[in-house]
C-alpha cells in the first residue's frame, strides 16, 4: 500500500515538474544549473568575471521561469544555453586571471634568479683569475663587412656537446654587460662546426651551441628579442679541416653585433 502511494506521489511530482518541459529542455536546464553551481561560489571566478556570473544567473532564472509555462521549450533551451555559455566564459576568465597572477610571480622569480646567477658567475670569474686570459677563449675583431664580431672558441664547449663550460663565464658576462650598456644594439649568434662527420649533425651541433649562448645571455637578463640564432654548420671555415688544430678553430660561435642604431649586417 505504502509502496503504491509512494509511486503515485512520484508520478504526480513528475507530472507537475514536467508539465511544461520536454526531456530535452529539462536536460538543458539541469546542465545549466550544474555549470552555474560550479561558478557561483568560486571566489576567483567571481572576482575575474562578476558580470558574466550575474548574467549566467539571470539567464538561468529566466529559463527556470519559462519552464513553468507550456509551449516554451525552445525558449527554455535557449536561455539555458546562454546561461551555460556565460558560466563557461566566466570560468575561462577565472583561469586566465589565475594564470596571469602566476606569470607575474614567476617573472619576479626569474629576475631574482638572473641576478643570483650573475653574482655567482662574477664570483667564479674572480676565483678563476687570470687563467682565462691565457686561454684566448674569445677574440674580438672588427670586420668591415660584418661589423663587430666576437668569436667564442671551441675551448668554451665540451667536445661534441652544446653546453657552455664554466670557463665561458667571463666572456658571457662581459657580453651581457656590454649588451646592457648598449641597449639598442642587437646581436646575431652564429654557430659553426668543423667538416668532420655528418654535415647534418654538424649543422645541428652548431645550432645547439649558438642557441646555448643565446640561452645563457637570456638567463643573464638579455632580452631574447635582441638575439638571433643562426646555424651555419661546416660553411665558412676559418682554418683548414685537415688538422685537429684547424678543426678546433673551425668549431666556434661568432657573435655579430649591430651598430648602435640596432642595424645588423646581412646574414651570410
Amino acid at each position: 500500500m505504502s509502496r503504491f502511494l509512494a509511486a503515485a506521489g512520484g508520478v504526480c511530482l513528475l507530472a507537475l515538474a514536467g508539465c511544461a518541459t520536454s526531456p530535452q529542455a529539462q536536460q538543458a536546464l539541469e546542465q545549466a544549473h550544474a555549470a552555474f553551481d560550479a561558478v557561483k561560489d568560486n571566489a576567483e571566478v567571481l572576482h575575474a568575471a562578476p558580470k558574466d556570473v550575474i548574467r549566467a544567473g539571470e539567464s538561468l532564472a529566466r529559463a527556470d521561469r519559462l519552464s513553468s509555462y507550456s509551449g516554451s521549450d525552445d525558449d527554455v533551451v535557449h536561455f539555458a544555453y546562454l546561461s551555460q555559455r556565460y558560466s563557461a566564459i566566466a570560468t575561462e576568465h577565472g583561469k586566465l586571471t589565475q594564470n596571469n597572477e602566476r606569470l607575474a610571480a614567476l617573472e619576479l622569480e626569474r629576475q631574482r634568479l638572473q641576478l643570483t646567477l650573475r653574482e655567482a658567475k662574477l664570483l667564479s670569474v674572480q676565483q678563476q683569475g687570470a687563467l682565462l686570459d691565457a686561454q684566448m677563449a674569445s677574440v674580438l675583431t672588427s670586420n668591415t663587412d660584418r661589423g663587430l664580431v666576437m668569436t667564442l672558441g671551441d675551448v668554451l664547449f665540451d667536445t661534441g656537446h652544446s653546453e657552455l663550460k664554466a670557463s665561458a663565464n667571463r666572456t658571457v658576462l662581459k657580453l651581457a654587460q656590454f649588451l646592457q650598456l648598449n641597449p639598442r644594439r642587437i646581436v646575431r649568434i652564429e654557430g659553426y662546426s668543423d667538416a668532420r662527420g655528418d654535415a647534418k649533425m654538424n649543422l645541428e651541433l652548431s645550432r645547439a651551441r649558438a642557441q646555448s649562448v643565446a640561452d645563457m645571455l637570456e638567463d643573464l637578463g638579455v632580452d631574447a628579442k635582441r638575439m638571433r640564432v643562426q646555424a651555419l654548420g661546416e660553411a665558412y671555415p676559418v682554418a683548414e679541416n685537415a688538422s685537429s688544430i684547424g678543426r678546433a678553430q673551425n668549431r666556434r660561435v661568432e657573435i655579430v653585433f649591430s651598430d648602435e642604431q640596432g642595424h645588423l649586417s646581412d646574414e651570410r
Partner: peptide
C-alpha cells in the same frame, strides 16, 4: 597564458640548473 606559463617554467628550470 598556459603556453606562456610553460615557457616561463622552462626558463626557470634552465636558470635553476645553471645555478
Amino acid at each position: 597564458s598556459e603556453a606562456q606559463l610553460a615557457d616561463l617554467h622552462g626558463k626557470l628550470n634552465r636558470l635553476r640548473k645553471q645555478l
